[in-house]
Design a protein around this nucleic acid. Sequence first.
DNA 1: GGGACCATGTAAATAGTTACATGATTAA
DNA 2: TTAATCATGTAACTATTTACATGGTCCC
Lengths: 176, 176
Amino acid sequence: MRTKTRYVLLGLLSQKSQTGYDLKKHIDENFKAFWNESYGQIYPELKKLLKEGHIKVDDKQKDSRRNTVYSITKSGQKVLQSWLEIEPEKESVRLEILLKTYFSNFGNKEFIIDYLEGFKESHDVDLRRLKAFKDSMHPSDQRELIRILDFGIKINKAYVQWCEESLYEFKKEVSL
Amino acid sequence: MRTKTRYVLLGLLSQKSQTGYDLKKHIDENFKAFWNESYGQIYPELKKLLKEGHIKVDDKQKDSRRNTVYSITKSGQKVLQSWLEIEPEKESVRLEILLKTYFSNFGNKEFIIDYLEGFKESHDVDLRRLKAFKDSMHPSDQRELIRILDFGIKINKAYVQWCEESLYEFKKEVSL
DNA sequence: GGGACCATGTAAATAGTTACATGATTAA
DNA sequence: TTAATCATGTAACTATTTACATGGTCCC
């Protein structure tokens, strides 16, 4: 899959000028249910975008710290817009816990129960966080943000529910 | 993320001796909602596993065709079992359509509506296929297969529902 | 003063896709 | 006979993670 890093960065910079660190945090906090980027992708890509003129450094915002605040340029906006008109590529999803669930009859059931508990708990935390975020918003505001929050809520609910059913099944089996 | 290809292959071979082509097909058909592998990963990994003695070639099953049927060895079973006891790594999920949804206010709304329709239709097909598969099974059989089918059903339902809600929102906005 | 967090960066390794090549078999 | 599917493979490219280094700032 062609890398989408530049589009995530341009998209976020089109909404707000910010640092690489901010961008990473934003992705971790809001896009967690459907996207992720590492610093090893973000910082080199920012440099590349800068060299290509699609973003620029906001010198006014440079404070005493080492931070570099980037903002999008006209040409960056064009790049972003063109990408939006291209059909999204097929998604990529990899959940190791599902593989372990499927092959669990080959090993010790206790392990899979532990992993499912952990997975459930972790996504339950995400679910509650996303719900709280959504509840804190005005319903008529930021339609697109609500769309992705709803996605995260739906997906995390599905994860949690599936875990509960699976735990019920596996625990029943172990206690026999 | 350390590559999991070998464990998927060993896991599937622990259930049934088969060719690289069969393995790929099995992953595409049954694991689609949570995993994928390409031939470029499968064939080299099979050769590596063979060299390491974790799988072997089933000569009896070699027919007139060029196909190579692999089966798991004792040492391969040990590798599989050890992996099952290691905590699953954090999942990796990338859905470009969610990015495009989030940034859609920046471009033309018609595009995002088209992509959402396509995404919805594609996952509705998956949903129906998984449901039909599950319905064709005896409920007491293959507990682990039912677990992953249920996962696929839940996730695809969530996708489809989210698309419907999002399409409603975006169409409402466009028609204003 | 120390821990949490802000902030940037890169090299090396690993992972993964894609495009291409080749040819057999099966069923319409 | 022709299209679909079975079947294997690899080289080149691209993507991504990870581990490491460095140091500032904020608050207790």
